Amino acid sequence: MRLIHALSALGSMIVLTACDSSPQSTNVSYGCGALDVQATYSSEHVELKFGDQRVKLDAKKSASGALYSNQQRELEFWNKGSHAQLTIAGQAYPLCIDKTELPQQFSARGNEPFWLVHVNNGSASLRQPSGDRDYPQVDISKVSDTSDNTWEVKLKEDETLHISATVCQDSMSGMPYPFTAKLNRNGSTFGGCAGEPHRLITGVSWQLHASALEQAPSIQFMSDNVVFGYSGCNRFQGEYQLTGEGLSFKPLAATKMMCAPEQMDAEQAMFEALDKITHFTVGDNGNTLQLRNNEDTLLRFIKAS
């Protein structure tokens, strides 16, 4: 189900059913891909805020973590540690991660010279042309004297990886990543990017900027490579591909309604542009999305509220 319709169906308040598990923090800001979710926990319920919605849920019993569910509304929110999972109408949204914490698994990479660090639940590995190295146990700590969220991953005494929550653009492919990375090793510092690019665009509805139509065309990416949206007249869905080199769309299927000429013209222009997309960029603190053909921006979207 599309996020816009799912949120509208939820309304402003949902009351659910009962639980015995609670998170470590009272207020948590999650990033569920590009969807921002604010959770306020109490002993018996959680209030979620996402988009322009506020949703109050009572907890129910769960074998692990804390589960909040409403079968009638087809909504679930499951929390464990710094991670959570939001499901609307059977559609799992991108993994929700506490914005003050790093993902339990992530990769950081750089070019000239090439390096790759993979962190996995407290251990790490380094891959370089000069040789590989494994770190059975690493220490991850928050750096407090910075204006943004920054972490230090201590690989060993004189080797560290710094991660900051600022968008990074790969120096060779131009692909944007959600984190900026710096590897300090053997007295040298190597710059790079970290995280998964799909988290910059998935989970939220993007509306076409400066559309002249009464209802602006929109697009939504999900983490299972599914894409759907509204093209100005018809609804469409299909698949997208996101690789280390760029973004592309497989042939999209759409409904067959006929609309006013200006709607049909806007729809045709949007489908023609999507067929040419090779890259994407994000801006304005993640609130704008540009779909591009190499260096040319063909479609510009803003994050829907």
Rank of each mutant, 00 (worst) to 15 (best):
L3G: 02
L3Y: 03
I4K: 06
H5M: 08
A6T: 07
L7G: 08
S12W: 09
T26N: 14
N27E: 15
V28R: 01
Y30T: 10
D36M: 11
Q38G: 05
T40I: 14
S43H: 13
S43I: 04
E44F: 08
V46S: 05
E47L: 12
G51N: 09
G51W: 05
Q53D: 11
R54G: 13
K56P: 01
K56R: 15
K60N: 11
K60A: 11
S62W: 03
A63G: 13
G65W: 11
G65C: 06
A66F: 02
Y68S: 07
N70L: 03
N70C: 11
R73H: 12
L75Y: 02
F77E: 01
F77C: 01
F77G: 00
N79C: 10
K80S: 11
K80D: 05
S82N: 13
A89R: 13
A89D: 15
Q91K: 14
Q91N: 10
L95H: 03
L95S: 10
K99H: 03
T100V: 02
F106K: 06
S107C: 06
S107G: 14
A108I: 06
N111G: 00
E112L: 04
F114L: 06
L116H: 15
G122F: 05
S125H: 01
G131C: 11
D134E: 13
Y135W: 08
Y135G: 07
P136F: 09
Q137Y: 04
I140Q: 08
I140N: 03
S147R: 10
D148T: 14
V153Y: 05
K154R: 15
K154Y: 10
L155A: 06
L155I: 03
H162G: 07
I163N: 00
S173Q: 07
K182T: 14
K182C: 04
N184Q: 13
N184H: 14
N186R: 06
F190V: 00
G192H: 04
C193E: 10
G195S: 08
E196A: 12
E196S: 15
E196Y: 10
P197M: 05
P197R: 03
H198V: 12
L200K: 03
I201Y: 03
T202I: 06
V204N: 09
Q207H: 08
L208S: 01
H209K: 15
L213Y: 07
E214Y: 14
A216D: 00
P217C: 11
S218N: 09
I219V: 15
D224I: 11
V226A: 14
V227L: 11
F228M: 15
C233A: 05
R235L: 12
G238N: 10
G238F: 01
G238Q: 07
E239M: 14
Y240T: 07
G244V: 11
E245K: 13
A253I: 09
A254E: 04
T255M: 01
K256T: 09
M258D: 00
A260H: 13
E262R: 11
Q263F: 05
D265E: 15
A266G: 08
A266Y: 01
E267R: 08
E272L: 02
D275K: 09
T278N: 04
T278R: 03
H279W: 06
G286L: 04
L289E: 07
R292G: 01
N293Y: 06
E295R: 13
E295C: 00
L298E: 02
L299Y: 00
L299H: 00
I302Y: 12
A304Y: 08
S305P: 02
